[in-house]
């Protein structure tokens, strides 16, 4: 389990990084936290001719809590974002989900942007980006000019482990929109062992109106669809307080929309079943976290 030979590049600036990537094109892989790439190299499942290590590019090491969004740079570690109180206040789902990403030691190295770029449909942060309606910013350079494009999850994730990232492009940052106080969020998942890839995971976003009734609701999925899927549940849940919401209908709707595959750890039927169970749990928990949730229902 030693990687095949590769040429190592360690640019110091973003400009330099984009230049190297432009020059190397398809032959290069970007190394950030390395929590997926290094095992792939060691098992010789990937053999890029060049590795471009961006860990020294300090301008990518940012967690910026702005008026509209939380923006995280390419080498912001999961752990840093998880512990950032400003980010957690602006966008609680970040911390809720990051706690479920692998283990502390992996979160200390692994990056949220790297996890998005890897486009693993079992990665929690893919569903977070999707359900929150966030975007990834892809940067590239040509003839000294830097070009950037922002893509939604729907446009960015193409297939398992496949994204719209083009050769020469760097996933420079990701933006997660602020969550209004009336909206509660939650992430529920089932994994075989603590920190394992989830057999199924559901990120939920429930907005309550001033009267405590559900105004809108949607969930994002991991591990049961080829790319993170957002299912809008407003039609089955809106117009009633959470306690009277038809969670069985929400459950049915999500189960009808997911398309799980069987693998070593779970059958498709079980994963579909979990999508329903976890939808119910995540929606209930998210609703309880809305500022408009009736106090006595807070613990529901």
């Amino acid at each position: 389990m030693k990687p095949p030979p590769f040429t190592y590049h360690a640019p110091a600036t973003l400009a330099e990084t984009l230049e190297v990537l432009a020059e190397l094109g398809e032959d290069a892989k970007v190394l950030a936290g390395g929590q997926s790439l290094i095992p792939l190299l060691n098992m010789r499942l990937a053999a890029p001719a060049h590795l471009v290590d961006v860990n020294g590019v300090s301008e990518l090491d940012v967690v910026d809590v702005g008026p509209d969004e939380v923006r995280v740079g390419a080498i912001a570690r999961h752990a840093r974002i998880e512990r950032d109180d400003g980010a957690a206040a602006a966008c609680p789902l970040l911390r809720q989900a990051l706690r479920l990403v692998a283990h502390a030691v992996i979160r200390n190295r692994g990056t949220t942007c790297g996890s998005l770029a890897h486009a693993d449909p079992a990665g929690e942060m893919t569903a977070v980006l999707a359900v929150l309606g966030g975007t990834v910013r892809l940067a590239s350079a040509a003839a000294g000019r830097v070009t950037r494009r922002d893509l939604t999850a729907g446009k960015f994730f193409v297939a398992p482990l496949e994204s719209s990232l083009r050769p020469g492009e760097l996933l420079e940052s990701a933006g997660f929109p602020r969550t209004p106080a009336s909206t509660g969020t939650a992430f529920a998942e089932v994994a075989r062992r603590h920190g394992d890839y989830a057999l199924c995971g559901i990120a939920a976003l429930v907005d309550l109106d001033a009267g405590g009734e559900i105004a809108s609701a949607r969930v994002g999925t991991i591990s049961v669809t080829p790319t993170p899927l957002v299912v809008d549940l407003t039609d089955v849940l809106a117009g009633v307080p959470p306690a009277r919401a038809d969670l069985a209908a929400a459950r049915e709707k999500v189960m009808a929309h997911v398309d799980p595959e069987a693998d070593l750890h779970a059958s498709a039927a079980y994963r579909r079943h979990l999508a329903g169970v976890l939808t119910e749990r995540a929606v209930r928990q998210a609703a309880a976290r809305s500022a408009h949730a009736p106090a006595e229902r807070g613990a529901a």
């Binding site: 098992m43 603590h194 394992d196 890839y197 070593l264 750890h265």
Partner: peptide, 16 residues
């Protein structure tokens, strides 16, 4: 052997 790694061979962690 489809699970020839500690990712898929589920040796329990301290948490289990």
């Amino acid at each position: 052997l489809l699970n020839a790694s500690f990712m898929d061979f589920l040796m329990p962690y301290a948490t289990e």
